[in-house]
Computed example of a mutant assay.
Amino acid sequence: MTSGNRDRNGLMRHVESLAAAMMPTPLVPLADERLDLYAKLEFSNFSGSAKDRSALWILRQAILREQVTRKSVLVESSSGNFAIALASLCASLGLEFVPVIDSNVNRSTENFLRALSSRVERVHDIDDTGGFLKSRLRRVQDLRAELPDSYWPNQYANTDGADAHYRFTASELCDALDRITHVFVGVGTAGTIAGLSRRLKKTDPRVRVIAVDVEGSVIFGGTPGRRRIPGIGSSIIPPLLQHALIDETLLVSEYASIVGCIQLWQRHGIFAGGSSGSVYAAVQRYFAGYRGPRPRVVFLCADRGNAYADTVFNPQWVAETYPERIDDVLISSTASV
């Protein structure tokens, strides 16, 4: 056996052991007078978000295809969670990783990435949509030209990321519940909703898939604008969106996302991040005044609230960022979304 084959086999054994250690995430019922409501706690994955699944499967498949070897340098654009997941995996596998982040990334996330990666690229130029994604992607291409043996996972177009949620996240939901009427999913790269929707609708074509986006995102044709809360929305229409089976879309404001985070925390004791708040806010708005048969509704809590302590959960930051919207929402669990 050549040294190259030994290295590949060693990497495969290691990544397979990591995959075997990834346990199903909890699915918890939440009290609601109108709904059978369930939150799938994706922040229980090993580095704290739903992106652990896609990062692991993308990396596994790349190693299997010999696109990634011991000599590879992985380069990827991320607003936070995918970079954290890749940094954790690459550190475990002894691979070099260069994350490309921007000035919206939470301070704790950036500190984590700098602790695990010898090089972190941070872009500051706002693109023509008011966001940073296009600037990050340009920097990724520059780095690919600069670094020998570089590999770009391309979480925005890589179908392996969607396949992870088809195989694992959605399969866990199908195993746990015999009936789901609605599933609400926040959209960024569209990998999660692509995998979930295809698997859930294969099991039951009647399930309603509701995609949740935020103001300032262009994913579903919205007006581009500045977004301050990472983890949901995008400055581009991600190629993975074409693989998703979506019945409806809901657009929420970033302020509604903050309200949703606070309500999840105060009502249910779930300390979750910005995208989770967005989706919870969308659920509440969708079923406001609902009087029909009792639905069974699932939504994903993509990451924990810890990284948002300086922003979403900081009253001073909220007051300074959204001065026109300040009311008693941060102390009231009944605020409207």
Rank of each mutant, 00 (worst) to 15 (best):
S54R: 07
A319S: 14
F43Q: 09
E76K: 09
G130P: 01
A145P: 01
S278F: 00
G186D: 09
G225M: 01
R294S: 12
K40D: 05
V120C: 07
V259W: 10
F168M: 10
R291T: 13
H14I: 00
P99G: 00
E76G: 07
I126W: 00
R107D: 12
E76H: 07
A319K: 15
R119K: 15
D204T: 04
F271N: 01
F97K: 08
R107I: 13
T249V: 14
A176C: 11
A55V: 00
I232Q: 06
N45C: 11
R304N: 11
R294W: 10
T203I: 12
A256K: 06
T159R: 06
R65W: 07
R167Q: 14
D175E: 15
N5K: 14
D102G: 05
F43D: 05
W57S: 02
H124Y: 15
P26W: 07
F46G: 06
P205F: 11
A170T: 12
S217D: 03
E146A: 15
V120E: 02
R291K: 14
G188R: 03
T249K: 13
G10E: 14
E324L: 09
L37R: 05
Y286M: 03
G225R: 02
P99F: 04
M22L: 03
V207D: 05
W265H: 12
R136I: 07
D310H: 11
F82A: 13
I193N: 08
D328E: 14
S92N: 06
